[in-house]
């Protein structure tokens, strides 16, 4: 028996909007730790890891570890039917091939049940090793989204370079080139507006911009985003989900032959 009640149902709606275009089908894993997902995009260039900790749910019952295969497009369709203020409850019986999403309006005057078919998905769980990153950049998530969108109108790839000067995002295309430098800036009114750069070593990596633009669909989940970079390792683009966990996107760099 599985029963997860999330008072801030909009979080789950936002999570699905953030991942549904990157990954088609995925297994959601439920354990005492929480509700999690790990999946790669179909070309195995990017990986998404989601964790919503059990403590973040108002009610969390998971009698045994369970893995539920879902089509994320269909799940997003169902969650779109929940209001932004609704409480969302996920329910599944042991051995069942369906999951039920229950949406309750805040005043309890409307209660809806949506039942979705589960699917068998062969997925490979990957071990993500702990790594010491050469540089970690924290910046407003809206600023990062703006940079990715702007650069993708010029080129297809972005070079991210971190030096003591700051973090530089560069692209080039048929019409010309673009460079955007963000310097560390901690003298802001609110901490979430700061750009903070921790650099152990300078690092420069090249990535496909279209993946970054997909990751920025997670922007509504967090005011800030963290980029962790090391040479010849996938970049980690992390959006923290307040009081619940995180959504992390890993993107393999482009590598010189």
């Amino acid at each position: 028996m599985l029963e997860l009640r999330l008072v801030q149902g909009s979080l789950l709606k936002k999570v699905l909007e953030a991942v549904k275009d990157l990954v088609n089908d995925a297994n959601f894993d439920c354990s005492a730790t929480g509700f999690s997902l790990q999946a790669m995009d179909s070309s195995h260039v990017a990986l998404v890891a989601l964790l919503l900790r059990s403590e973040g749910f108002e009610h969390y019952r998971c009698d045994r570890n369970i893995s539920m295969g879902m089509n994320l497009g269909n799940m997003a369709k169902m969650l779109k039917c929940a209001g932004n203020d609704d409480i969302i409850t996920l329910k599944a019986d042991d051995g069942s091939d369906v999951v039920t999403f229950m949406f309750e309006s805040p005043t309890q005057d409307k209660i809806a049940d949506f039942e979705m078919k589960l699917m068998d998905i062969d997925s490979e769980h990957l071990g993500i090793p702990e790594a010491e990153y050469h540089a970690i950049v924290r910046m407003p998530s809206s600023e990062f989204a703006r940079i990715c969108k702007d650069l993708s109108s010029i080129g297809d790839t972005v070079v991210i370079s971190v030096t003591k000067e700051g973090v530089k995002f560069s692209t080039r295309g048929d019409i010309g080139t673009a460079n955007i430098v963000c310097r560390q800036n901690t003298t802001v009114d609110k901490p979430e507006e700061a750009t903070v750069i921790e650099m152990n070593e300078p690092v420069s990596l090249t990535f496909a911009l279209r993946y970054f633009n997909s990751f920025t669909k997670a922007t509504p989940l967090s005011n800030t985003v963290t980029l962790s970079l090391s040479s010849e390792l996938p970049v980690v683009v992390e959006y923290k989900i307040a009081e619940m966990g995180y959504i992390r996107f890993y993107l393999a760099p482009k590598i010189e032959d």
Partner: peptide, 14 residues
């Protein structure tokens, strides 16, 4: 042009 890397060459199946 640099070649696109693959996640599976960095992270191993667990």
């Amino acid at each position: 042009d640099p070649k696109q890397g693959n996640i599976l060459s960095f992270f191993k199946k667990s």
